[in-house]
Amino acid sequence: MEKVGIRIDKRIHDRIKERLKSTGFTSVEDYVNYVLDEVLSSMEEDEGEDMSDEDQEKVKERLRALGYLE
């Protein structure tokens, strides 16, 4: 998977490094990836997303074409 570099506070980096000892992770990078992925997935699950009127109409049009909606 393609990766990009970002910078984080050394203080956070050190806290993560300390935490690694009690996890199965062997690198700060892997741990940060995991945590961010979990947090974002959770947020995406919880948040409803607004669909534009245009997008909603596209879905409805599809349902009509399939015969499921009048």
């Binding site: 409803g48 669909m51 997008d55």
Partner: peptide, 8 residues
């Protein structure tokens, strides 16, 4: 579209 639709 369906992914967002189902989530909502």
């Amino acid at each position: 579209l369906y992914r967002t639709y189902l989530k909502n």
